[in-house]
Simulated scan of single mutants.
Amino acid sequence: MVTGERPVVVLIGPPGSGKTTIGQALAGALDVAFHDTDAAIEADQGCSISDIFVLDGEPTFRALERAEVARAVEAHAGVVALGGGAPMDAETQEVLDGQVVVFLDVGIADAAKRVGFDASRPLLAINPRAAWTKLMNERRPTYERLATHRVDTAGREVDDVVAEIVSLLGGGQ
């Protein structure tokens, strides 16, 4: 279903920044729906993102991701959370142009506590701390460039982060 409505906000950031947890709470606070593009891809494909990486390769996953982000931004009027690598794609960057984008920033210590750096994160499977740091160093300039707002989630309660985002959005809808 394509509605032509824009998301209230699109959340971007690295693994462990809280995109799903904060996105769900933010959607509740704003009384809108929540859409996680990674979860949508897994539901559509009937397998985990990790399995898609292993069975079909990263290029296949990135193509699925690109299509899902474009569909979600076109059709979803609530809070949309993107996978950590989605904003690196040039076509996805174009889709995000003109959207309200919040970059959820986090340091490695908090990210490690949140995601545990397990096998469900295919790009972090080998030497997860070094891989996360490398990914973040590569991705940070893009996250910052695309962001309308940057919100640090490190060491903060979900409700505090949600309150800050609601304030940045002008107090809600």
Rank of each mutant, 00 (worst) to 15 (best):
residue 2 V to N: 12
residue 3 T to L: 11
residue 4 G to R: 00
residue 4 G to Q: 01
residue 8 V to T: 14
residue 8 V to N: 00
residue 9 V to Y: 04
residue 9 V to F: 04
residue 11 L to P: 08
residue 12 I to H: 02
residue 13 G to W: 09
residue 13 G to K: 07
residue 15 P to I: 10
residue 16 G to S: 03
residue 16 G to F: 07
residue 16 G to L: 05
residue 18 G to K: 00
residue 20 T to A: 10
residue 21 T to Q: 08
residue 24 Q to L: 14
residue 25 A to N: 02
residue 27 A to V: 07
residue 27 A to L: 07
residue 28 G to H: 01
residue 29 A to H: 01
residue 32 V to Q: 04
residue 32 V to L: 11
residue 33 A to K: 11
residue 34 F to E: 11
residue 36 D to S: 12
residue 36 D to M: 09
residue 36 D to Q: 03
residue 38 D to L: 03
residue 39 A to S: 12
residue 40 A to Q: 10
residue 42 E to K: 08
residue 44 D to W: 02
residue 46 G to Y: 11
residue 46 G to M: 08
residue 46 G to S: 09
residue 46 G to L: 11
residue 47 C to S: 09
residue 48 S to C: 06
residue 50 S to Y: 03
residue 52 I to K: 03
residue 53 F to L: 10
residue 54 V to M: 04
residue 56 D to L: 13
residue 57 G to S: 07
residue 59 P to R: 00
residue 59 P to V: 05
residue 61 F to L: 09
residue 67 A to S: 14
residue 70 A to S: 09
residue 71 R to M: 13
residue 71 R to C: 13
residue 72 A to I: 05
residue 74 E to Y: 00
residue 74 E to M: 06
residue 75 A to C: 06
residue 75 A to E: 14
residue 77 A to P: 11
residue 82 L to G: 03
residue 83 G to H: 09
residue 84 G to P: 06
residue 86 A to M: 06
residue 86 A to Y: 03
residue 89 D to C: 04
residue 93 Q to E: 05
residue 94 E to K: 15
residue 95 V to G: 00
residue 97 D to Y: 02
residue 98 G to T: 08
residue 100 V to W: 01
residue 100 V to D: 02
residue 102 V to S: 09
residue 102 V to H: 10
residue 103 F to A: 09
residue 107 G to H: 04
residue 107 G to A: 07
residue 107 G to R: 01
residue 113 K to F: 02
residue 113 K to A: 15
residue 113 K to G: 14
residue 116 G to V: 11
residue 117 F to C: 05
residue 117 F to R: 01
residue 118 D to K: 03
residue 119 A to N: 10
residue 119 A to V: 13
residue 125 A to N: 06
residue 125 A to I: 12
residue 128 P to G: 11
residue 133 T to L: 14
residue 134 K to R: 15
residue 135 L to H: 10
residue 139 R to K: 06
residue 139 R to C: 12
residue 147 A to R: 05
residue 149 H to M: 08
residue 149 H to E: 13
residue 149 H to V: 09
residue 151 V to M: 12
residue 156 R to P: 04
residue 156 R to H: 13
residue 156 R to E: 06
residue 157 E to W: 01
residue 157 E to F: 07
residue 161 V to G: 10
residue 164 E to R: 10
residue 168 L to W: 02
residue 170 G to H: 08
residue 170 G to C: 09
residue 170 G to S: 07
